[in-house]
Simulated scan of single mutants.
Amino acid sequence: MPTHDDDHNHDSTATATATATATATVTVLGLGPMGRALAGAFLDAGLRVTVWNRTPGRDRELVGRGATAAASPAEAVAASAVTVVCVVNYDAADAVLRQDTVAAALKGRTLVNLTADTPARARDTAEWAAGHGIRYLDGAIMTPATTIGTPEAVFLLSGPEELYGEHRPVLDTLGGTHTHLGSDVGRAAAYDIALLDIFWTAMAGYVHALAVARAEGITARELAPFAQGIGAILPPLFEEFAADVDDDRYSGELNPITSAVSSMAHIAQASESHGIEAAVIRAAEGQARRVIGLGHGTDGFMRVTELLGRSRR
Rank of each mutant, 00 (worst) to 15 (best):
M1P: 13
P2E: 13
T3H: 13
T3Q: 15
T13L: 05
T19H: 11
T21L: 14
A24N: 06
A24V: 01
T27G: 07
L29S: 02
G35V: 00
G40T: 08
G40V: 00
G46P: 09
L47N: 14
V49P: 14
R54T: 00
D59Q: 14
E61D: 15
G64H: 05
G66D: 12
T68Q: 15
A70G: 11
S72W: 02
A74E: 06
A76P: 04
A79N: 12
S80F: 01
V84F: 08
V96H: 00
D100V: 00
D100K: 04
L106T: 02
G108Y: 04
R109A: 02
T115A: 08
T118A: 10
P119G: 08
T125P: 00
W128D: 03
H132G: 04
Y136M: 02
G139W: 10
T150R: 07
T150F: 06
E152D: 15
P160Q: 13
V170Y: 11
V170Q: 15
T173Q: 03
G176E: 06
T177W: 05
T177F: 01
H180T: 03
H180P: 04
G182F: 11
D184M: 05
R187E: 06
D192Y: 13
L196S: 06
T201E: 08
T201Q: 12
A202N: 11
A204V: 05
V207I: 12
H208A: 15
A209H: 07
A211R: 14
E216S: 08
T219P: 09
R221S: 13
E222R: 12
L223T: 06
P225T: 15
Q228K: 09
Q228C: 04
G231D: 04
A232E: 14
P236T: 01
L237G: 01
F238W: 08
V245T: 01
A260P: 00
S262V: 07
M264K: 03
H266K: 12
E277S: 13
R282N: 12
A283E: 07
A284R: 03
R289M: 08
G293E: 09
H296K: 07
L308S: 08
R313E: 13
